[in-house]
Computed example of a mutant assay.
Amino acid sequence: MTTTTTITPARRLDVDGVAPAFTRAVSALDDAASAEADRAGIEQGLRDLMKLRASQLNGCAYCVDLHSHDARAAGESDQRIFAVAVWPEANFFTARERAALALTDSVTRLSETHVPDSVWNEASAHFGDDELAALLALLVSINAWNEISVATRGWRAKLRG
């Protein structure tokens, strides 16, 4: 019989407790990004896949858990959710989704990529200016949440049965 022990990294900082105005401001940023995505008509499943991908790249376990469940609730299949980690090799994302995921990778890895023209131009071929602004807002927001969560170990994913 195998026993498993759950390891929980120590919380470094209760950012909600010590900087509540800051986390409220980040929440307001997230709300504004969602409102822009609503206004631009960005489909919920794509939003969740982008947030999932950014969270994977940033190593944010809490957000990977959250956005994988959100994507499923938005109607995304397990196959597509699991394949976000390897989206360039997966053949079941549309050209539009691939452009959004490439933008996600490039913006999330900003210091490495500086978002090259090729990535931006491909996204521009599939999204109008309002949509691109909404995608960028979503990416800035999720990357901010990822940075806070990873740096502080402030939030925990819960094991779901």
Rank of each mutant, 00 (worst) to 15 (best):
L138D: 10
I142Q: 00
A144F: 08
W145G: 01
V140D: 06
H126G: 09
G128T: 09
D129P: 12
G128K: 05
A144T: 15
F127E: 04
L139Q: 12
R153A: 13
F127N: 02
L136M: 15
D130M: 09
V140I: 15
I142S: 00
A125E: 12
N146Q: 07
A137T: 04
E131L: 06
A134E: 03
L132Q: 09
W145R: 00
F127A: 07
E147P: 14
S149M: 14
N146L: 08
D129Y: 10
S149N: 15
I142F: 09
A144W: 00
L132N: 08
S124I: 08
S141T: 06
I148A: 07
D130I: 01
H126A: 14
W145N: 01
A151K: 10
L132C: 07
L132S: 06
F127D: 06
R153G: 13
G128P: 04
R153D: 10
T152A: 00
I142N: 01
I148D: 03
L135T: 03
S141P: 00
D130K: 10
L132K: 09
L139A: 05
I148K: 03
A151T: 15
L139C: 06
H126P: 10
A133C: 10
A134T: 07
L139T: 05
A151F: 07
E131K: 05
A125M: 11
A123W: 04
A123G: 05
L135C: 10
I148N: 01
I142D: 00
L135A: 01
F127K: 05
V150P: 00
D129W: 09
A133Y: 10
R153E: 13
A137M: 04
A137N: 07
A133E: 12
T152E: 03
S149T: 14
V140M: 13
A134V: 07
A144M: 14
A144P: 06
S141Q: 07
N146T: 06
W145S: 01
E147K: 15
V140Y: 07
E131H: 06
N146C: 08
S124E: 14
N143P: 03
H126Y: 13
A125H: 14
L138F: 07
T152I: 05
I148C: 03
A151Y: 01
A134P: 04
G128N: 10
S124M: 11
S149D: 13
G128I: 06
S149E: 13
S141L: 03
L135Q: 01
L138Q: 15
A123I: 05
A133H: 12
L139H: 10
V150H: 00
E131Q: 13
N146D: 11
S141M: 07
I142K: 00
L135E: 04
A123T: 11
S124T: 12
V150E: 01
L132A: 02
S149Y: 13
N143R: 03
V140A: 15
L139S: 08
F127W: 10
V150K: 00
